[in-house]
Design a protein around this nucleic acid. Structure first.
Length: 489
RNA sequence: GGGGCGUUCGUCUAGCGGCCCAGGACACCGCCCUCUCAAGGCGGAGAUCAGGGGUUCAAAUCCCCUACGCCCUACCA
């Protein structure tokens, strides 16, 4: 391959940015960065009917969140703009006109039938959309007559009726189609907008795209694009069709498969770096044993021959595991920072705002206990709440009774009130001695204290936790526990 | 119906003719560690490499056929 690598990501603003689209963007970006080329974002807004306001903003927001930067496109501009196809209509009109005059395209006057009225059965049976259209063979006379009383028409590309069209796909190898199996697709719609086929070919050429990397669902339309490039006298770019991402039922991923929009991952507490790593592994692998891999390493090693051919199923479980791995790699300060928005969202409002200093001391204790930031509020709640109002019966540990539990609480309260040294080593030494004196196992004694301090049977290691909680909170909770436990008899 | 692509443990994958009676990871099970929960360590179960034919001294790897899955077959991208 000669010349600069220029790849593009071409989303259409028809809804929330999907994980499949983002993965395509990611692979294009990785490819560009690997080759020191350019990554371009181009908005394919040629379908006015399906346009959903805000989708491009969400798309760009998703890319930014993932740290996928683009060299040309919306916001940043570039020398090949505009990067919205709706602003390039004149280009497509000129090209369509040229194709018609060259004899590579023709106006079609057939009445349109909204596809939505077709039953699935009809669509399955349809030989080809243009099968009944005879406009290709209209005489000049007929055309003149038709164009006066028929105000709207479309332009169809005249596919060669013989021969084959071949592509040397960089991932799949040689693929070929007999031209007779391809129909005369529409290139210009009656609303004056081009279809995807015309626009993509025109822009990939004008923007000097060197490699088209897109999802496999586009493979069947590649011969059309190739024929268009040919008719226009353009040299086609290289093609690489990426495997698709499927839902757990092996069907094309969609909303009903759970979180699929990029924003949902963010809301669900997934770290962008974890999502990147996970998406990379959906169709690419560094070697036979690496799962956790930095973006930098991926960029250095990102070559097309390591891309898988078969589609992949999105495994939420593995993503969550991977996210946990990334959570553990954060510094306490960073973790605290990332948890904050979730605490602000999910913690009872009266506990806000959270004390950042305090949070930073809490963070290390949960770091290896959470898989997603979404768990932030639940897992830290007792650090912020005042005295816990748990069911006092849960405080009694296995093998203990009310009396032994109460004396354990009292003994602990005495010790915890008497000392000011709340370093965990000291607490451990002191409380272990107390527990031994009471002839309780660590499991029992510390279990009682854990419940008294948190109201829960599960928590980070007790001593470290009490150290972070500090004397005031600890003593207050122990007192509270003693009182409530005594009263509940 | 037509066209195209794909098919290695449940899932993501390694493998590009001998190193593979197939390696890693998630999930699962067990043990160890241990104040609970995690994390970590160790081990286990799990794939007749979709099936059948070839080619070859040798095939998951090359070729052919079949099956299945998926995608496309719109004035959607």
């Amino acid at each position: 391959m000669s010349g600069e690598v220029r790849v593009r990501f071409a989303p259409s603003p028809t809804g929330l940015p999907h994980i499949g689209n983002i993965r395509t963007a990611l692979f294009n970006w990785l490819f560009a960065r690997h080759h020191g080329g350019k990554f371009i974002v181009r908005v394919e807004d040629t379908d006015q009917a399906r346009l959903v306001p805000g989708s491009i903003e969400a798309m760009l927001e998703g890319l930014r969140w993932l740290n996928i930067d683009w060299d040309e496109g919306p916001v940043v501009g570039g020398n090949s703009g505009p990067y919205y196809q709706s602003e390039r209509l004149h280009i497509y009109h000129d090209l369509a006109e040229r194709l018609v005059s060259q004899g590579n395209a023709y106006r079609c006057y057939c009445s349109q039938k909204p596809p939505s009225q077709d039953t699935q059965e009809q669509r399955d049976r349809r030989v080809s959309a243009s099968a009944e259209c005879k406009c290709r063979d209209l005489s000049q006379e007929d055309i003149v007559k038709l164009s006066v009383d028929q105000k709207s028409n479309v332009v169809r590309f005249a596919m060669p009726k013989e021969g084959v069209t071949r592509v040397k796909d960089l991932i799949r190898g040689e693929v070929e189609w007999r031209n007779e199996t391809l129909n005369d697709f529409i290139i210009l719609k009656s609303d004056g907008f081009p279809t995807y086929h015309l626009a993509v070919v025109a822009d990939d050429h004008l923007m000097e795209i060197s490699h088209v990397m897109r999802a496999e669902e586009w493979l069947p339309s590649t011969p059309r694009h190739l024929q268009l490039f040919e008719a226009l006298g353009y040299e086609p770019p290289q093609f690489a069709h990426l495997p698709m991402i499927m839902g757990s039922d092996r069907a094309k991923l969609s909303k009903r498969h759970g979180a699929t929009a990029i924003g949902e991952f963010k809301d669900n507490g997934i770290l962008p770096e974890a999502l990147i790593n996970f998406m990379v592994l959906l169709g690419w692998a560094l070697d036979d044993k690496t799962d956790l891999v930095s973006t930098q390493t991926v960029i250095e090693n990102f070559t097309l021959n390591r891309i898988t051919k078969s589609s992949a199923i999105f495994d939420q479980e593995k993503l969550l595991w991977m996210n946990g791995m990334y959570v553990r790699e954060l510094t306490p300060v960073e973790l605290a920072k990332r948890m904050t928005p979730f605490l602000e969202r999910d913690l009872p409002k009266d506990l806000l705002p959270v004390d950042q200093q305090y949070l930073q001391r809490i963070a290390p204790l949960l770091q290896e206990r959470i898989k997603s930031l979404e768990e932030s509020a639940y897992i830290t709640e007792y650090f912020f709440k005042a005295d816990e109002k748990f069911d006092t019966s849960t405080i009694i540990q296995k093998g203990m009774d009310r009396d032994s539990t109460l004396s354990a609480l009292k003994a602990a309260l005495d010790g915890l009130s008497a000392t000011d040294d709340y370093r965990h080593q000291n607490l451990e030494e002191m409380l272990n001695a107390t527990g031994e004196k009471l002839e309780l196992s660590r499991r029992q004694f510390l279990g009682v204290l854990r419940t008294a301090a948190t109201g829960r049977s599960v928590s980070p290691p007790l001593f470290e936790m009490l150290e972070v909680l500090g004397k005031d909170r600890t003593v207050s909770r122990m007192k509270n526990a003693v009182e409530r436990f005594s009263a509940a008899s």
